[in-house]
Computed example of a mutant assay.
Amino acid sequence: MRFQLRRFFLIGLLPMLCSCQSIFFGAMNAGRASTSAITRTYAPDRDLKLDIYRPASSSASTPVALFFYGGSWRYGSRSEYAFVGKALAATGILTMVVDYRTAPQPAFPGFEADAADAVRWARDHASEFGGDVQRLFLVGHSAGAHIVALLATDAHYLAADGLKPRDLAGVVGIAGPYDFLPLTDPKIIEVFGAESEWPVSQPVNFVDGDEPPFLLLHGQGDRIVWPRNSEALEKKLRAAGIAVNYLRYPSLGHFRILAGFRYPRLAPTLRDTAAFINSTPGVAASKSRQ
């Protein structure tokens, strides 16, 4: 009975995320056993940091996940997403929750450059915390899902850090916008600039067969980022011969799918994300099978 009351309470909070973020994230982060994050600076010139959540035990093949949060590319803080880091770490995944610069300073593509730098840092340092750099995954929700999808499809961002999309073991996109033109919201237009530049912001425009495996999760009740975004990216990836699994969650909305990391009975987000990461082979193993 107590769980049911909590469940209904949280569901009632979810639609108010944009206006009552402190309430939502307070609910998501409340009542968890204390798990200390290790904070590191990954881009000293921009004072950008990430928080590292270590699993209780690790091995030579412990996977690593970099999580990028949403917030319309304008809002968010890594501390708000401690519940994601703790949840993934509890499944045996070394997890890094990453801050990045938000618009309007800088606008697109500044946050993509930040994300690429975070990947470079993780490749260089994950082994110090017990992670296998050959099993490096990107995970993102909403705008964060856009960031990781574009990073894994438009190769020039990672190339600036001496990497390529196939250096990633996989990508998990949760309720992400991947094919969202034309832009109509003035605040989103401010993020992506002149209309002539909009096409280079769309992950679907860069799928060419050099991508890592993808897992796409989307609630069919999402009216903030429409499911057609995941449908379009799945179609492009499949046509290019890329391994992709698109899981449709009936009736789920944009924020309840995120809340599934904290309360698995609300959504299977944690289960499906962890299953994909823990079952996907590392980069070296994948190459040896080709």
Rank of each mutant, 00 (worst) to 15 (best):
S286P: 02
A285K: 09
I147H: 02
A56V: 03
A240C: 13
S79M: 09
R223K: 11
G131W: 10
F276H: 06
S127C: 12
L48P: 07
V97M: 06
L48T: 05
K86E: 04
T269D: 01
Y263Q: 09
L14Q: 03
A126M: 09
V207F: 12
S279I: 01
A115P: 15
L13D: 07
F137P: 03
I23C: 07
N278M: 14
H254Y: 11
S288N: 11
L217D: 01
V98R: 09
R262V: 13
P268Q: 01
Q134D: 13
K49V: 01
G70D: 09
D272A: 01
P63C: 09
A107P: 02
H156Y: 15
R166G: 06
A149F: 03
E195D: 14
L247K: 04
I52L: 08
I242F: 02
W226H: 14
L13F: 05
E190P: 12
D154K: 10
K235I: 11
R6K: 14
R46S: 12
R32S: 05
V225H: 12
L247R: 04
D114W: 00
D208M: 14
L266K: 11
I23R: 12
F67Y: 10
F68E: 10
P203L: 07
A90L: 08
A259Y: 02
G26H: 09
L258K: 07
K86N: 01
C18W: 14
S251R: 13
G253F: 10
R6C: 09
I224W: 00
R166N: 08
L217F: 04
K49N: 03
F9K: 01
S72H: 12
H218Y: 01
V225T: 14
G110Q: 03
A232L: 06
D167C: 14
L247D: 03
S79H: 12
S72L: 07
V204S: 10
Y263I: 15
T269S: 06
I242P: 04
I147C: 05
P186E: 13
F83N: 08
G253D: 15
Q105M: 04
P15T: 01
R6P: 02
A60L: 06
R289Q: 14
A149E: 02
V225D: 08
G282Y: 06
R256A: 04
A33C: 03
S72W: 09
N245H: 13
F261C: 04
S286V: 00
R46H: 02
F255P: 02
M16T: 15
L258H: 02
G144T: 08
Y263P: 08
F108C: 12
V204T: 15
A60Y: 00
P44C: 14
G130C: 14
H156F: 12
R40W: 07
D272G: 00
A267I: 07
G140T: 03
L50I: 08
A175K: 00
V191E: 11
G221P: 07
S142T: 11
D117E: 15
L258D: 05
S72Y: 13
S196W: 00
I93S: 11
C18Q: 10
R256W: 00
S61V: 09
L266I: 08
S230L: 06
V172G: 01
S36H: 09
V172M: 04
